[in-house]
């Protein structure tokens, strides 16, 4: 029995353009991310060994700029250990804080790039597209954390050092801005593996960025904030958790656990 269309099809109520628009434009749909990659860094554990810096250099094909360029303040280090001295000799304390791109949710660098070379991706990461960058360097000016590094010139690797370059990561040209990516190549790989295994999501701890992997004190924890069972979600509940320059409202995805001195 085929129903006659005129009887059984409900008559669509007249909807105003405004209603249609509201339906179409689901508020906040663009904020729903697949993942929310987050890192916590326990400053109580950090001893400033700089293993993360070395690991990052190796993983991400960061150039060794040489003595001269270093002296001119052109070193390339996506993660750096900032050192802050407290007190006067002999009662003196040294504090370390590893600083890398904070992957801000409201990143100032993203708004200013005229060519959209830096934008927010579906994983909640602040990504940098090297090929699109024209090198206005305004993102570095806008970044309050000073974690964007500019390629002042082309870099080269002496033989046989070029053999150790990571094939998963581009070597950047002169005139291009770059920064920490949370090792996006590893994230991509993990997502691919998850897909191959018929899983929808990457498991907690399946991948970690190079710095996290290298940290001997296990001060850094990396994971998905959306997954309530992940290690990083647990460490976020720590009472010591804070964000650097929180008052600027950039909403960083890197959360530090305060060093407690007693």
């Amino acid at each position: 029995m085929t129903p006659t269309p005129s009887e059984d099809k409900p008559v669509e109520p007249e909807r105003s353009l405004r209603e249609k628009w509201r339906e179409y434009r689901k508020p906040g749909y663009y904020e729903e991310l697949d993942y929310a990659w987050t890192m916590t860094i326990d400053l109580d554990r950090c001893m400033g060994c700089e293993a993360c810096m070395v690991a990052c250099k190796a993983e991400n094909n960061l150039p060794i700029v040489g003595e001269q360029a270093f002296a001119r303040g052109r070193e390339m280090q996506w993660i750096r250990i900032e050192r802050y001295w407290e007190g006067q000799y002999p009662d003196i304390k040294l504090r370390f804080i590893p600083v890398m791109c904070q992957q801000c949710e409201a990143a100032p660098c993203e708004t200013v790039c005229p060519v959209t070379a830096t934008y927010h991706n579906q994983d909640g990461l602040n990504v940098q597209v090297y090929n699109r960058c024209i090198g206005t360097r305004s993102c570095a000016v806008y970044c309050p954390y000073e974690v964007r590094y500019f390629n002042y010139n082309d870099h080269h690797w002496d033989q046989p050092l070029e053999q150790q370059l990571n094939p998963d990561v581009t070597v950047r040209e002169k005139g291009v801005m770059e920064k920490c990516t949370f090792c996006i190549q590893r994230i991509r790989l993990a997502k691919d593996h998850a897909k191959d295994d018929g899983r929808r999501r990457v498991r907690d701890g399946e991948m970690v960025p190079a710095c996290v992997q290298a940290c001997p004190a296990e001060a850094m924890v990396f994971g998905d904030r959306k997954d309530a069972a992940s290690r990083v979600s647990a460490s976020l509940k720590d009472a010591r958790a804070y964000r650097v320059l929180d008052e600027l409202n950039t909403r960083p995805s890197v959360i530090y656990l305060k060093k407690v001195t007693g």
Binding site: R74, N151, N153, K174
Partner: peptide
Amino acid sequence: LGIAAAGMNH
């Protein structure tokens, strides 16, 4: 050479 020719730094 690149912007290295200028004096800018980090």
